[in-house]
Design a protein around this nucleic acid. Structure first.
Lengths: 341, 341
DNA sequence: CTGAAAGCGCTTACAG
DNA sequence: CTGAAAGCGCTTACAG
C-alpha cells in the first residue's frame, strides 16, 4: 500500500510554520504548554490538511499502540458475543480499537494469539475465555503475561486461574450451587448433568458448585450421571440423548451452559418428551435465546455485557493495585424447571 | 510500554553473522534465493533468540499491515456474530488479525471507523453491515474507499450500495419474495410487516422483495400494514404489539429479520395468541435461535458463516477483476407458518 | 547473492 | 517554550 496524498506531521509543521517537534507536541499532548498562538496554528493546519497521525510510526516511537486485544473462545457463541459487545462499548468510548481473536478452546492457539497480540503492542489484553487446566500451558501463559505487564501492558482475565492482572470473577460455583439447591427444593432427586470439557476451569467450577448444591441436600451424583460433551448446542443435543437413554433416565437435566441446555431441549422436543412435565432442564449464562425457548429456560443469569464493560474498564487502570471484581449470577427459575410430577 | 528483553532483527543478524539486510530477506521472503547455509543460520538464530518481528516497524516500512478491518453493525446480534465467525476462520488460516468495530447502524460512526481502520493500514476492509440511504455519507465513504483501494487496500462489501471493491451479495429481495409467495400459497391474505429503519438498504431490499412476492399474487400492502421499528428483538416485540392492536389484526406477521420475529413471537406468547393457529410468523436470516423457537421459526436461511468466509476470501484477491459472489437464501418453511384456519 | 545506507513517520531527550 | 537530531525496528533500492 503506497501512501498516496498522505499528509504527514512534517506537512502540518511546514504549513503552520513550526518545527516538527512542536507540531508533534501540540497535536499529541493536549496539556502541553506552548504559546497559544502556535498551538492554534498547528491545530488549524492539521485540520485544514486533514492530518491523521500514522499509528504505526507512533507505535514504533512509543512502543505502545491504541489497540486492545480481546481473546475469546468463539464469537459465534452468544455468550462471547455479548461479552464482546460490552468490551467494544467501552473501547469506543476510550477511542481504542479492538483486535478480536478466537481460541476455540485450544490452549496452543490461545497462547499463539496472545503472543501475537503482545507483538502488536496492544495497550491491554483481555482474556475472556475460561482458562485451562494445563500446567505447562499456564506456565507459558504466565511468563508471557508477566513480561507483558512489566513492560507496561495491562492484563485482565475473566476467568480464574491467572495470578496476574486484574480479574472479573464470575461466581460460577455459587450460581450453580444456588440453582442446584433450588431444584432439589422443587422436589428433584434424579439428575443428569451435561458438562463441557473438564480441561476448562469454568466447567470445573460450575460442576463443583452443582455438586455442592446437591450435596447441601444430601444428594450425591454418581459417575454416569454426568456426560462430558462439546460446549455447544450440538453437545447438549447428543448429551441429552445419552442421558435419556439410560435405563433410568433423570428427571432433571442440568447443563453447564445455556447453549447446551437449548440443545438438550431440542432433543427432548424431537423425541416427544415434555419439558418440564417429564423432565426439567436448566442452563447457565442467561442468553437472550434462553428467554425465547419454550418453555423459557431456567438458568443463572450473568450480566454478560456488563462483564465485558467491566473488563475493559479494568484494563484502563494501572496494574497495581490489583482489582478483583466479583460478578454474581441471578437465579432465573423459569418454566423449564418445575416440580417433578 | 518499554520493550524489555526484546530481540530485534539486528540481534538475529549479529547472532547469525550476516548483515541486517540479509537477515530481513531470509526471514520475510521465503523464496528469496540466497545461500542455503546462510538462510539456515539466520533461521536458526531467529528461532534460538525467539525473534518476532515488530509489526509496527514492518508496517511503517512497507506501509501495510497484517490486520484486516471488519465493520459490522453489532456483535451482540447473532447475525453479525456468525458472519464474523466466518471471517475469523479464514483470517486465522491466512495469519491475519482482525480489527472488529461496531457501527450500530450509525453512518457517521461507520465512516469514522473506516477512516480509523484505513489509518491503521489494514490490508483489507470488510464492510459487512448494510449500507445506508444517505447520499452525503455514501459519497464520503466512496471517496475514502477509492483512495484506500488505489493505495493497495482491498475492500469487500456484504451489502449493495457500493460500486467499489468486491461484493458478497445476499439475495435479500429474492429470498423475501419467495417467502411471501409461499405464504400466500399457504392461503394467507392479511399481512403485517415488521420492518427495520428504512435508511438501511438491506431493509429496503427485503421489503421490496416482500412486496413483490405479494404482488405476484395480486396482494398489495397498505400503508399501515407495515410498522418501522428497531432492528432487534425489542423492536419486534413492540412492532407486534402495534400490528396486533389494529381493529383488524393480520393473520401473518412477516419480520425482516429473525431477531424481530423472535421478539414478535414472544409478544404473542405473552398475550396468549397462538402461533401458527391464530397468526403465522416469519423471519429472515436463519439464526440458530430460529430453530429453538417453538414452534420453529419459518425463515429464509442465509449461510452466514459462509458469507463471512467468502468475504474474507475475496479480500485476499486483487481488486481487479471485481468479484461479485451471489448468495441465495434457502426457504425454510418451518412450523411458525401454517395455513390460516 | 550480499551489504551499507537511506527512509518509513513519528516522539523525545537534549540543548538553547 | 521551541528546535535540531537521534532513535524506534524494519525494508528496499542501490552498489558491489
Amino acid at each position: 500500500m503506497a501512501d498516496r496524498n498522505l499528509v504527514r506531521l512534517q506537512d502540518v509543521a511546514a504549513h503552520a510554520g513550526v518545527s516538527i517537534a512542536t507540531a508533534s507536541r501540540m497535536l499529541s499532548d493536549p496539556n502541553y504548554g506552548g504559546r497559544a498562538a502556535l498551538r492554534e496554528r498547528v491545530l488549524a493546519a492539521a485540520a485544514e490538511l486533514g492530518y491523521r497521525a500514522n499509528p504505526h510510526a507512533r507505535a514504533l516511537a512509543t512502543s505502545s499502540s491504541t489497540s486492545v486485544g480481546l481473546v475469546i473462545h468463539d464469537v459465534r457463541d452468544s455468550y462471547f458475543a455479548l461479552l464482546s459487545g460490552g468490551v467494544m462499548t467501552v473501547a469506543e468510548r476510550e477511542d481504542l480499537l479492538v483486535n478480536m481473536v478466537c481460541a476455540y478452546r485450544d490452549p496452543a492457539r490461545e497462547l499463539e494469539y496472545v503472543k501475537r497480540l503482545i507483538d502488536q503492542r496492544v495497550r491491554a489484553l483481555i482474556l475472556a475465555g475460561s482458562a485451562f487446566r494445563d500446567t505447562d500451558h499456564n506456565a507459558a501463559m504466565r511468563a508471557e503475561l508477566r513480561d507483558y505487564q512489566e513492560s507496561g501492558g495491562s492484563v485482565v482475565s475473566v476467568t480464574r486461574g491467572r495470578d496476574i492482572g486484574h480479574l472479573v470473577q464470575i461466581d460460577n460455583a455459587g450460581g450453580m450451587r444456588a440453582l442446584a439447591g433450588a431444584l432439589v427444593e422443587l422436589g428433584h432427586t434424579s439428575f443428569g448433568v451435561l458438562a463441557g470439557p473438564l480441561r476448562l476451569l469454568t466447567v470445573r467450577d460450575r460442576l463443583q458448585g452443582l455438586r455442592q448444591g446437591l450435596k447441601d441436600h444430601g444428594i450425591v451424583l454418581s459417575r454416569d450421571d454426568i456426560v462430558y460433551t462439546d460446549l455447544s448446542r450440538e453437545g447438549g443435543l447428543t448429551g441429552a440423548q445419552t442421558l435419556m437413554s439410560r435405563r433410568n433416565p433423570p428427571r432433571c437435566l442440568m447443563a453447564v451452559a445455556d447453549v447446551m441446555a437449548l440443545g438438550a431441549m431440542a432433543w427432548l422436543r424431537t423425541n416427544g418428551i415434555s419439558v418440564p412435565d417429564e423432565v426439567s432442564v436448566t442452563g447457565f449464562g442467561g442468553l437472550p435465546a434462553a428467554l425465547d425457548a419454550v418453555p423459557p429456560l431456567a438458568t443463572v443469569e450473568i450480566p454478560l455485557e456488563r462483564v465485558g464493560e467491566t473488563a475493559m474498564d479494568l484494563a484502563l487502570r494501572p496494574p497495581s493495585p490489583r482489582h478483583v471484581v466479583e460478578v454474581e449470577g441471578t437465579l432465573a427459575l423459569r418454566e423449564s424447571a418445575a416440580a417433578p410430577r
